[in-house]
Design a protein around this nucleic acid. Structure first.
Length: 377
RNA sequence: AUCCACUAAAAACGAAGAG
């Protein structure tokens, strides 16, 4: 019963920390945790996917002689949350490693942008399977190394649906639609991912007719496919069609609702965006931030501020949205106050603040901001 | 060998389009 409950939490994408914590404490009371490694593994994995690495560590350290499976789950928890140093140190401390451990580290290097290290792991790992090849393929594709990706793809001993999808997506993301299309036509067994990638590829280029045709031709739709259509028409300002797809969705999640909010923003429909926001069953930080943007885009700086003050939590993105709202309304000093109050910075935040000064003609301060930014892209 | 690793959808800056 406990395992079923945990499996459900794991597969749901709207699992909250509170829910997990609740189940966790129930389990802790019954003392099964230290005896059943499957339960511990599941808990670690769920906490990992929520980014709660403190809990991950706490549970892991209670295990006596953790299996390689448990080690791998912890490794993935750090890797998938972007903690490269911790990933490396867990990897070094592992009593034994298998192909999954190596592939996890490979992906960690790749997402941190260290393509050479990723390549080194790939070349030196004791054995490789199709997942490791796919991970390496993804690494090249994320860095935009399309030639390397293509060569690797041709060298692979076998292809899975993922291999084809990664390659298509690599071309699609770089705007090489013709190549993407060409590869797409050669895919032996197209899965939902594959079709959805092509829909998005066409939508980016504004080929909404092709996107619609793909949608009609594909055998199955997932919630992601539907959301891609909502987004495709929304991005191009067609609220009607966007709404049309949204209304026909068999189920909706926060991604779909937020995509619809954004559609209204592109159509300059603040009331529509607000209505959509009110109708959604739950709000998260992304939908709240979208509403800051909605008010800002429609010229309602007070509305943006009201949203900003009301939202239950904020992050770099939402603070930056508020900052930009002020700076576009001509209130650079207020924007600066938001900037100074931010708990965390990234390149976008620095860039946005610099741009705010630049647009006002204050190039001196803009340059100062750029110089102070610890990171460039 | 179905508890671990690889692929698709939503928020902020920039990338010609804050005249």
């Amino acid at each position: 019963e406990i395992i079923e409950c945990l499996e459900a939490l794991k597969s749901s994408e709207s699992t909250s920390f509170q829910q997990v914590k609740q189940v966790h404490s129930r389990i802790a009371e019954s003392h099964v945790l230290c005896r059943d490694s499957r339960i511990a593994n599941l808990l670690i994995q769920i906490y990992g996917s929520l980014g709660c690495l403190g809990e991950v560590y706490c549970i892991f350290k209670t295990l006596h002689r953790p299996s390689i499976l448990s080690w791998n789950i912890v490794l993935a928890a750090y890797a998938q949350n972007g903690y490269l140093e911790e990933t490396k140190s867990v990897f070094d401390r592992m009593p034994e490693r298998n192909i999954v451990s190596f592939t996890t580290v490979l992906s960690a290097f790749a997402s941190a942008g260290f393509i050479d290290s990723a390549k080194e792991v790939f070349e030196t790992m004791p054995e490789r399977n199709v997942v490791s090849w796919n991970a390496m393929l993804t690494a090249f594709s994320q860095q935009g190394h399309l030639e390397d990706a293509q060569i690797l793809f041709e060298k692979m001993p076998e292809h899975t649906a993922v291999s084809w999808n990664v390659l298509i997506n690599a071309y699609a993301e770089r705007g090489v639609l013709e190549r993407a299309q060409l590869v797409f036509e050669n895919v032996p067994q197209k899965d939902v991912y594959c079709w959805t990638i092509m829909i998005t590829a066409n939508a980016i280029k504004g080929n909404l007719d092709s996107a619609s045709k793909l949608f009609r031709d594909m055998p199955q739709h997932s919630i992601v496919t539907w959301t891609a259509m909502v987004q495709a028409f929304g991005e191009n300002g067609n609220i009607q069609e966007s709404l049309n797809y949204f209304s026909k969705m068999p189920e909706r999640n926060s991604f779909a609702w937020t995509a619809l909010i954004i559609a209204h923003i592109h159509g300059r429909d603040l009331d529509g965006a607000t209505r959509t926001f009110r109708n959604m069953p739950d709000h998260n930080i992304v939908s709240w931030t979208a509403m800051i943007h909605a008010h800002a885009e429609c010229g309602s700086i007070d509305g943006a501020k009201a949203v900003y003050d009301t939202m239950p939590e904020r992050n770099v993105v939402s603070c930056t949205a508020m900052l930009v709202a002020y700076s576009q309304a001509g209130h650079v000093d207020t924007a600066r106050r938001v900037f100074d109050s931010m708990p965390l910075y990234n390149v976008v935040a620095w860039n946005a603040m610099a741009a705010g000064y630049a647009f006002q003609g204050d190039l001196w301060t803009a340059r100062m901001m750029m110089r102070s930014c610890p990171e460039r892209n």
